[in-house]
Amino acid sequence: MKAICKIFPYLFRKPKKGFFRLLPCLPLSLLASLMIFPVLMMIANSFMDTQELLEAYGRILGDKGSEIVPRLLPRYPTLRPYVELLLDSPDFFVMFWNSCRQVFPILLGQLLLGMPAAWAFARYEFPGRRPLFLVYTILMVMPFQVTMVSSYLVLNRLSLMDTHMAIWLPGIFSTFPVFIMEKFFRAIPESLMEAARVDGANALQLFWYMGIPLGAPGVMSSLLLNFLEYWNAMEAPMTFLKTKALLPLSLYLPEITTDQVSVSFAASVVMMLPAVLGFLWGQDYLQQGIVASGLKE
């Protein structure tokens, strides 16, 4: 290290204001464009009509044509793919609705169970708190493959395989939301609690009137992170569902895009839309949630 300092002393001087501070912007901008390029291209191409789509990508998507002719923007932008998706693809809507039916009950259940649990971990000292929280943390980081057999055994015994319940139950009892919300509840200053207690608030009132409003960003973060996770879920539906009519969009979309080339881009865009809107609306919550998912106390 010291050697490097000696060889390149100019690297270690304070940079001139302006130009050098802006230097990183160039590579960063390039890289950032690379990150969002796939999505931009999908959106742009979703306005191509069938004819143009087959001309451009028929070789790969439909086994027609001789060569692909990549195109950033459609020559004649049209909403026809979306109309076709709306009118001619009943399957798509069944799957979209399945995704909703599988995601939102999980989020609700996570809130109902997770908020009180997180509050208990964050604001009370009780025997068993540390080991229990450690168990929750370990469960949080376990990949799906670890819990796959055990979930299957229990779902099978309750004859819940191949129902929406098979997706809901493991999702609702995920310990991830508890872990996230605990961090936010813990950050509420004790002096506020003390003040409310002096005013005669009981434990339940503290949780309801102080905890939930003040910890709302944590609740939002947990909701958003879990929404993105379950909207994208594949492993659980793939393992626990058999009936095609129950599959969520995340598993069915690849099939639509191969069978119905004309709507492949439009269907993809509609699927990413809720996630993108959630991201744009809640980017701050998302970032706070990611920081909270860091394992340090």
């Binding site: 990150m35 796939p38 999908m42 692909i68 594949m234 996630a275 959630g278 998302l286």
Partner: peptide, 18 residues
Amino acid sequence: FLFPMAIPVASVVVFWRL
């Protein structure tokens, strides 16, 4: 840089295939 995290895998599969 955070954007791709929000994108469901299934909805960019067409792009990866292409």
